[in-house]
Design a protein around this nucleic acid. Structure first.
Lengths: 185, 185
DNA sequence: GAGATATGTCAACAACACTGACGTAAATCC
DNA sequence: GGATTTACGTCAGTGTTGTTGACATATCTC
């Protein structure tokens, strides 16, 4: 509807817009990075999608499986905070994963209201299979651009994250780094 | 389907071992990068989402608007190839964008079957407003990690893209770099 | 015991993807 | 110049994943 009424105050626009080139005008939006991020992410999730389809699962299941595998004992509330979805949305996929034996629940000991989530062996197997294809893509990419870019790439991605959330993300990464993908099945 | 049929050659497997493990085992999967990509992308699209909600639009509208703004004269088939969705899916959001005056169609001259898509001034304004918030996030990130990481970051993201598609993506990026976000309002 | 917290659930709805089928106009092939 | 292919439009139905709102239950905290 009437778009004419809407005048975004933020963009100096009409004559202030510079050419796309990045070097000459550092203020030009990084269109190339925006689009690379789009294409990279699309291909990045496409591999798991194919596997998930075999199981009748979707991306939502993948995310739950992934973070539970990486963080055994995760509670519902923590998972909701990671995924940023409503508990109703989570519950639907979580229920399926539990009913089909990929994820197990146990009641918290210190706080019996908590539901501590863990992967069953089958759940872990699927989670790692999904991680494997994404890991292969990442490894191939790092092999191509040079392994010395791994740490900078991580810093760049972290810098893209909302500042107020980086701390929590970093803690999560550190926690999983301890637990590790461990050889234990 | 039958995942049990899979027998990884190296691992004795106590009860159906994980194909998830890296066969040659050079190093563990880059779990940190997987998760950083997830969180970064989530925040990256969150900014546009808020703006789009004002207009009653969603991410699908954003993607169409973005690529049409960046590639004036784009055809339906080209857009479908970029977005990798069905024409029925595209048609729904495209119709809304056209009806509400954000995108215009004209018939191709060399091939009158083509529909050449362009942004109206209002469409361009919205597209640039959306690009602006994502551009701000990218610029802030690059300021933090150092601008010298811009080019490597782009190479890393490109390397994540399916090899067979990188050529097309590169061409698209090059094309938009030429056309640029033109000064005309 | 009162109130807050963590979780579960029901119902309705919306965005956005899919498949399959069919139609039309325009270009191309033989 | 008729047949075929290509590019696009549309109708109808379906599935996944998100949303809001309301309400229930168990458990912890004060």
């Amino acid at each position: 509807m009437n778009e004419a009424a809407r005048i975004p105050p933020e963009i100096p626009s009409p004559d202030a817009a510079p050419p796309a080139a990045n070097e000459d005008r550092p203020e030009a939006p990084a269109y190339d990075l925006m689009e690379l991020l789009f294409f990279a992410y699309r291909d990045f999730v496409a591999d798991p999608d194919r596997i998930l389809a075999e199981y009748g699962f979707g991306r939502a299941h993948h995310r739950v499986l992934h973070f539970v595998d990486r963080n055994p004992g995760l509670t519902i509330a923590e998972l909701l905070d990671i995924l940023r979805i409503t508990k109703q949305s989570l519950n639907r996929v979580l229920k399926e994963l539990i009913e089909q034996g990929y994820i197990a629940q146990r009641t918290g000991t210190s706080d019996r209201r908590h539901r501590l989530l863990t992967c069953t062996p089958g759940g872990r197997r699927l989670a790692r299979r999904l991680a494997a294809v994404q890991g292969r893509r990442l490894r191939r990419a790092l092999d191509e651009v040079g392994p010395e870019l791994r740490e900078p790439a991580g810093r760049f991605l972290l810098a893209l994250i909302e500042p107020g959330e980086r701390e929590a993300v970093s803690r999560l990464l550190a926690a999983t780094a301890e637990t590790g993908p461990a050889d234990e099945p």
